[in-house]
């Protein structure tokens, strides 16, 4: 990572990137293969393991594996932190970090975030309660995100009470104290939605024109309610004076190298990350065609999460030529892969 100019993480063209990115991924995967016996077994029976330079041919880890197996490339005594996915379905991903990996995550997140937000720190309004962020044993994705994004914060303001209700008076107070200052409002997408709905109900026109809304994750719940990104943005514009909305997309398996949406509403890969889209047969899909999202990141080092196959669908629209000026691939996420209805002889209803 030392070769990377951290002020220019969105300036690497395809050809420049390949020289830095590919060897880094390959060497990390080699390391994991040495240290991680499960990984060795996973890849052993795949017939296209190649040492060829193209990462397209390199085997990938379906994210479900992180829920089923303990996957680490370090000794237990070096485990510094375990992040768990905030899944409510019982199955939880566990990501094992050593100190270095944790530090790299923060560094990369900072480099990506500051390229969009600037290098100064802002007051940060967090759509969550202080309580949920105090439990040290429960280091889940939501808490990890709050802590992670706190690197952009001068001071954190948790504006929900323990029952996740909005503390409206407190919010007003914060806003009046920070008049004319830039403020970041941070929250999970579905919680932002609820927040805006609450504001709508109170019919209170708060002046949020100095706020940047930073949100991500939680799209699944909105998709279930059939709320699209457009609808989401329109609702915010209608009810608040927030001008800048930044959506991010990230996986717990690749914390740090997340994707921010540009002014034209495309997510962008940086020098730290890459994306591939695969069709049903797991072949590479052309730009413009929807498929299964595969993500690559140079960040993971204490666990084998560098090349993962997500359960999300998305489309790449191009590379190095987004009108926002950033290099790298730009893409959109269309949502989770839908569950299939199982036919067969089994009765599921009692």
């Amino acid at each position: 990572m030392k070769n990377i100019n951290k002020n220019k993480i969105f300036d690497y063209s395809k050809n420049q990137k390949v020289k830095i990115f590919t060897p880094l991924i390959v060497s990390k995967m080699k390391f994991h293969l040495q240290k991680n016996n499960n990984l060795k077994l996973f890849f052993k029976k795949i017939n296209q393991i190649t040492q060829k330079k193209s990462l397209e041919n390199y085997p990938f880890m379906p994210v479900r594996l992180f829920k089923k197996f303990k996957l680490t490339s370090i000794n237990d005594k070096d485990i510094y932190k375990i992040i768990t996915s905030s899944g409510t379905s019982g199955d939880v991903s566990r990501i094992y970090l050593n100190k270095k990996n944790a530090k790299d995550q923060i560094e990369v997140l900072y480099n990506i975030g500051s390229s969009f937000l600037g290098k100064q720190r802002y007051p940060m309004i967090i759509l969550d309660s202080k309580k949920t962020n105090q439990n040290k044993n429960d280091f889940n994705a939501r808490r990890a995100a709050v802590i992670g994004f706190s690197i952009f914060s001068k001071k954190n303001y948790f504006i929900f009470d323990e029952d996740q209700n909005l503390k409206l008076e407190y919010l007003k107070k914060i806003l009046s104290e920070n008049k004319n200052k830039k403020i970041i409002i941070f929250g999970f997408t579905d919680i932002v939605w609820n927040f805006i709905q609450t504001l709508e109900k109170t019919k209170l026109k708060l002046n949020l024109s100095n706020c940047i809304l930073l949100h991500g994750g939680g799209w699944k719940k909105l998709a279930d309610k059939k709320i699209t990104n457009d609808k989401f943005i329109n609702k915010i514009k209608k009810n608040t004076s927030i001008k800048k909305i930044i959506n991010y997309y990230g996986m717990i398996e690749q914390t740090g190298s997340i994707f921010f949406e540009c002014e034209h509403r495309y997510f962008h890969t940086s020098i730290y990350s890459d994306i591939l889209i695969r069709d049903k047969m797991l072949n590479i899909q052309k730009f413009g065609k929807e498929g299964i999202i595969q993500l690559l990141s140079i960040v993971p080092s204490s666990y084998p999460g560098n090349i993962i196959l997500t359960e999300d669908m998305g489309t790449i629209f191009g590379e190095d030529d987004c009108i926002c000026g950033r290099k790298g691939k730009y893409f959109r996420v269309s949502g989770r892969i839908p569950n299939a209805e199982l036919r067969g002889c089994s009765n599921v209803n009692l």
Partner: peptide, 22 residues
């Protein structure tokens, strides 16, 4: 087959790689 089928098969295959002598 739907996309989820591909993922199911892939996951099953990885699990089997650990547990069976293939």
């Amino acid at each position: 087959l739907p996309e989820i089928a591909t993922l199911d098969k892939l996951n099953k295959f990885y699990e089997d790689s650990l547990n069976l002598n293939i």
